[in-house]
Nucleic acid binder design. Structure first.
Lengths: 223, 223
DNA sequence: TAGGATTTGTGCGTATGTATT
DNA sequence: TAATACATACGCACAAATCCT
């Protein structure tokens, strides 16, 4: 990979992570000059990265105003979740890849961390571990376009889910996550990728149901 | 829409169409300077569009060499088709939208044009009509992320299909297309979006099968 | 091997658009 | 309403990379 591409990825990954972990919550204004100074480059490569984030819908750039981290409307959120559920299942049906031993080892390590997290819940550590687990799940399909699509959709809504997690029961979310990793591990150790995919689909569905419930409760309470 | 965005879309749509209709076949070098001169802008907005096309995988930009229209490997092609089939079905399951009368009218007009094309096959006109029909099909779902994903995948492989169409029986492709429009129209006139989605899935599948058959025949013949 | 031609990447000054006072 | 501040969009000149002779 060329040095240009390396730097682009470094910038892109850093900004995307900050957006999705709410270091930059929706509405945050990202100054080209400030980012350029922080990363030790000029405005040009920064603008290249912001353009990509804009094409992907994570930020919105407007002439004379700035580059602002976007929010996601509830209707759009529902659509993304509905699609993510279907894609999760497709991971088990289109070119499923049996997991390598190293992958199982990594997931076991995640389970340990998740269990510790469940005993001592913390939103940000939860979000990071969740993202890492999602990243592993993408390796279960050899269908590259499917993996790329699933990843894009995950990053489009991860930050919204994290933003609303205060309204949810964080410890309950952690419990559910631990259960998901356990069930996934059992499926993968049996070599059943389809079962792992169905577990994931079920948990995406439940996660969205809890999200909707929390939203409804917040609205009913006048929030 | 701002003037900046308007120009961006004009450039983007133009270049994407040229790539997908094989005005720029894979391997073509797109010069920033030349495009800037043709569209009466400087290199900057051209580079903005080429960056987007690069992120979407339609071109590949390399320092010191140029921006080159990509090709798609057979394995990748198979993955994209497999995914497109599934997404075609999802159009009927996720937020299906009953078609408006104007849409039916437009599809009837397409049927007429397709029938004329079947009597007098022509690859480029076929490709354009096919793209227009696909565009209409996206309106059948209210799930925006699904529609956007389906569109991206369509544009990733449309040019490959068109490039290989010489190896196929063009008149047979036209016949199949006429049949697809007829069946789709029947389904939509009955208000059955799911049936229309299944028709589409079936035809995407058959199209890929014919493509594989032609590839295999070409290889067997030593091509 | 060297050097010139060509092409993209970068840096920065300027133009343009927006919001606020 | 006008002026000012500030941010992005643009265009150009130069640097860096590649190819060909």
């Amino acid at each position: 990979m060329s040095e240009v591409e390396t730097r682009h990825h470094r910038l892109y990954d850093a900004l995307r992570a900050r957006i999705c972990l709410l270091d930059y919550p929706p509405g945050t204004k990202l100054g080209e000059e400030a980012l350029a100074a922080e990363f030790g480059v000029s405005r040009t490569p920064v603008r290249r990265v912001l353009a990509r984030l804009s094409d992907e819908g994570l930020v919105e750039t407007r002439h004379g105003i700035g580059t602002i981290v976007t929010d996601v409307e509830p209707a759009e959120l529902a659509h993304v979740y509905a699609l993510r559920m279907e894609l999760a299942e497709l991971v088990g049906r289109l070119s499923p890849c049996p997991p390598e031993p190293e992958m199982l080892e990594r997931i076991r390590a995640m389970l340990t961390r998740a269990e510790a997290l469940a005993r001592n819940p913390e939103a940000r550590a939860f979000a990071e571990l969740n993202a890492a687990f999602f990243d592993e799940s993408l390796a279960l399909t050899g269908n590259t376009p499917l993996a790329e699509t699933a990843e894009r959709l995950y990053f489009q809504t991860a930050r919204i889910w994290l933003a609303r997690i205060g309204a949810l029961d964080l410890s309950r979310e952690c419990e559910s996550f631990v259960a998901e990793i356990r069930e996934t591990l059992a499926a993968l150790e049996a070599g059943d990728v389809m079962a792992a995919a169905l577990v994931r689909r079920a948990h995406v569905s439940m996660s969205f149901t809890r999200l909707k419930g929390a939203e409804g409760a917040a609205e009913a309470a006048g929030g």
